[in-house]
Simulated assay, not measured.
Amino acid sequence: MSLTEPLTQPQVDAALLTAAALVAERLGGPVGAAARAVDPAQWPALRVDDLAPALAAAVDGAWEGQIAVLVPRTQAVDLQTALTAGISSMALELGPLVPSGTHQVEAGQVLAGGGGVRVAGVFEGEALVAALVLTPRVAPAATLPPLGASGPVADIDPRRLNLLRDVEMGISVELGRTRMTVQDVLGLAPGVVLELDRPAGAPVDVLVNGTLMARGEVVVVDEEFAVRVTEVVGAETDPRPRA
């Protein structure tokens, strides 16, 4: 099988059934007995309390996750040999599989691995001989950067930018800020002087749609106030609290 082709779930399930039958045979089960998939709704029938701690191994390669062998507590067997045989059998069907060590884990924990868990077992009547359990590795959730955090900007098609060149944006200039109590606000009247948080002569903030984009100095042009831009900044340098 080509490693470039992603495995399908039916392929994994078929390999699991073949491997489970081989594991049961290695553990002294009936020769040639077919394994069957165990639906999650039927897991209580496995009687977890009657199962020995499973032997599990993390696996990388064509398939990634955990493979574990389950047997009854009354069955004294070599789980290491059985697990190795199961992994080798699945590798023949799926492609190279590399185990990274084995460990014991309670049967209940193996079966509580979530909706992606697959179980295949060999039974004599209603009694379990052995089962092989696959728990696929779940990729970690993507971590999104905090809102407003800067990051690399993807290349933008200049033709798309041209579509935005005639869009108007609101520009405002902020001289400074202050805080007042409700009582002080109610007492505002002509002649009241408001002290701001910025010293005289300090540059003013130029805001584009409320976002700090530049700083500059106030000048007069044709008897009207204007701002001469002295510094272009980014939103990440804006010290003002955000909503």
Rank of each mutant, 00 (worst) to 15 (best):
S89W: 00
A76L: 08
I87T: 10
I87N: 02
T74Q: 13
E106I: 09
T74E: 13
A107I: 10
P99F: 06
E106Q: 14
V105Q: 15
L92S: 10
L94I: 01
G86Y: 03
L111A: 09
V110S: 04
V98K: 14
L111R: 12
Q75L: 12
V105M: 13
D78H: 09
P96E: 09
L83R: 10
Q80M: 13
L97G: 03
L79W: 01
V71L: 10
A112S: 15
Q104I: 06
L92V: 05
L92T: 11
T74M: 07
A91Q: 14
Q104N: 12
Q109A: 15
V71N: 03
P72W: 02
T74H: 12
T84S: 11
P96M: 05
Q80S: 15
T102Q: 13
L83W: 02
R73D: 05
E93Y: 01
V98A: 13
P99S: 04
M90K: 04
Q109F: 08
I87W: 03
H103Y: 15
Q80P: 02
G101F: 10
G108E: 09
Q75M: 08
S100L: 09
S100D: 12
A76T: 02
V110Q: 06
L111V: 06
L111K: 13
Q109K: 13
A82E: 00
P72H: 10
P72A: 08
G95W: 00
T84L: 04
E106H: 13
T81G: 09
M90G: 01
A107S: 14
A91I: 03
E106W: 07
I87L: 12
E106Y: 06
G113S: 14
H103D: 09
T81P: 00
S89I: 00
M90N: 03
V71R: 11
L83F: 02
M90Y: 01
Q80D: 13
L83V: 05
L83D: 08
T102A: 14
D78P: 04
S89F: 02
T74G: 11
P99L: 09
M90P: 03
A82R: 00
